[in-house]
Write a protein that binds this DNA or RNA. Structure first.
Length: 402
DNA sequence: CGAGATTCATGTGAAGTATACCTTTAGGCTTAA
DNA sequence: AAGCCTAAAGGTATACTTCACATGAATCTCGTA
């Protein structure tokens, strides 16, 4: 892919990008700026892994885009490289993103995903969870090794499932004869630990690290480095980087956001046929990112979720953005289902769906009591007006609402 | 007039069901000796 | 007799339903000042 991109780019001859991948969020640069301290910490905690010894369970906290995943990935890579260079085979690192719906959002699926990364395969359903555990043990316990399980966005998983599986995971070590397991949890929420079962907390929180957000200057540094590799010379208007950094600094020092901004701004400029990414492209990029993020979520929701969302949007438009209640939504939803010959879920289920939308930030829901008028959720749609019609279009396409 | 009881519309927990899929097991059939 | 295939039996995870009880403030009721 990389090669093809390059070929096409150089062929068209007027691309702004030298190597766009540098700006992608999963790109691990060779040197990481302004995270020396953190790298040092993580590395020293995980260092015993080089000899295949068990390391302390580690928890990493910090806002989105503060480099948590990056640092952990980087240190993992280095560890693996080092181990391989020594010609040994005592360390295996698996990385699971717990947020991915339908991939790793239940205990069963997280475990299945880990096994899959070991080259095993697990059916989608049908197996008892314990036998999946057994399979997991079997697959890793074949030889002496350390298995480092990195659970990204672990707070999401614990919110959906209980924290029990973390406990089971930590307890697994006593059942292993040869291999050992260590966990690295990555979480956006600083308060994540508070809600945990004390037993889990004590066994998991052996080591904790907090990543502070980047400040605007640090962001600029990072952007400069990446931009140098990513863009051709002169492809950026003066001050573009500073502007991206400023935008992102406002978003709690979110470096991911900053990189996205730069990339999308470049793409926009390119599409326009402009020779330079201009400052105004960054403003546009800012809007586009926000928009795409939301639309992606909407698109990937299951059918029934989309139907519920559609009725929320309807209501939102009809009430001119004022707040409304569960009952209104359900009535509307029923109507839509009837009209489109879709199954109608129960109110109970819809209630849960609304709770999930709330977690996703698509709506803002608050349980209130209206006295004689009973108790309900007061709901407000959080999708910006500018993308409402696009959102409706997506849902209409995927549900065939006509 | 105010304290306490009522009430409404839905939140919420627990248990049950449908579906889709898995493994095990017991026949039944084929095959090679 | 051993090997292989198939279908039935028995089991699970997940998404959803059913049942039943919990909530909490506006409203009502009624005794009292």
């Amino acid at each position: 892919m990389v090669e093809i991109d390059k070929i096409f780019d150089s062929f068209s001859g007027r691309s702004l990008f030298k190597n766009k991948n540098v700006l992608r969020i999963n790109y691990v640069p060779e040197a990481i700026s302004h995270r020396d301290k953190q790298i040092e910490n993580v590395a020293s905690i995980l260092a015993p892994a080089l000899k295949g010894e068990r390391v302390s369970n580690l928890f990493v906290f910090g806002n989105t885009g503060s480099g948590k995943t990056l640092v952990v990935d980087y240190v993992s890579d280095e560890l693996v490289k080092r181990v391989q260079a020594n010609g040994e085979d005592v360390l295996k690192i698996v990385n699971v993103n717990c947020k991915l719906k339908k991939v790793a959002d239940t205990e069963y699926r997280i475990l299945a995903e880990i096994i899959r990364q070991f080259g095993g395969s697990v059916p989608v359903t049908g197996l008892p969870t314990d036998s999946v555990y057994n399979k997991f043990i079997e697959i890793i316990d074949g030889k002496k090794q350390l298995v480092l399980i990195v659970l990204d966005e672990i707070d999401q998983a614990v919110k959906k499932i209980s924290d029990g599986f973390l406990y089971t995971l930590t307890r697994l070590n006593s059942e292993l004869r040869n291999a050992q397991i260590s966990l690295v949890g990555i979480s956006n929420s600083l308060t994540f630990m508070d809600g945990l079962d004390p037993r889990v907390r004590s066994s998991l929180g052996e080591e904790e690290l907090v990543f502070p957000p980047y400040n605007a200057l640090q962001l600029q540094d990072i952007l400069k480095e990446r931009a140098l590799q990513a863009f051709n010379e002169g492809a950026l208007e003066e001050g573009a980087i500073a502007k991206c950094a400023a935008f992102a600094a406002r978003e709690h020092g979110d470096a991911r956001r900053a990189l996205d901004l730069l990339r999308v701004a470049g793409e926009l400029a390119e599409r326009e046929g402009s020779k330079q990414a201009l400052l105004r492209h960054i403003d546009e990029a800012n809007k586009k990112i926000e928009r795409d993020k939301m639309l992606d979520i909407i698109e990937s929701e299951p059918k029934q979720f989309q139907l519920v969302l559609y009725s929320i949007i309807n209501l939102h438009e009809r009430t001119n953005g004022r707040q409304f209640f569960t009952g209104d939504i359900y009535d509307n939803y029923e109507g839509i289902c009837n009209k489109t010959r879709n199954e109608i879920l129960t109110q109970r289920r819809v209630s849960d769906i609304l709770a999930e939308f709330d977690m996703l930030g698509i709506i803002n829901a608050r349980v209130i009591s209206k006295g004689r008028q009973g108790r309900t959720r007061e709901i407000k749609l959080m999708i910006p007006n500018s993308i409402l019609s696009k959102a409706k279009e997506i849902i209409r396409d995927s549900v065939e609402l006509g």
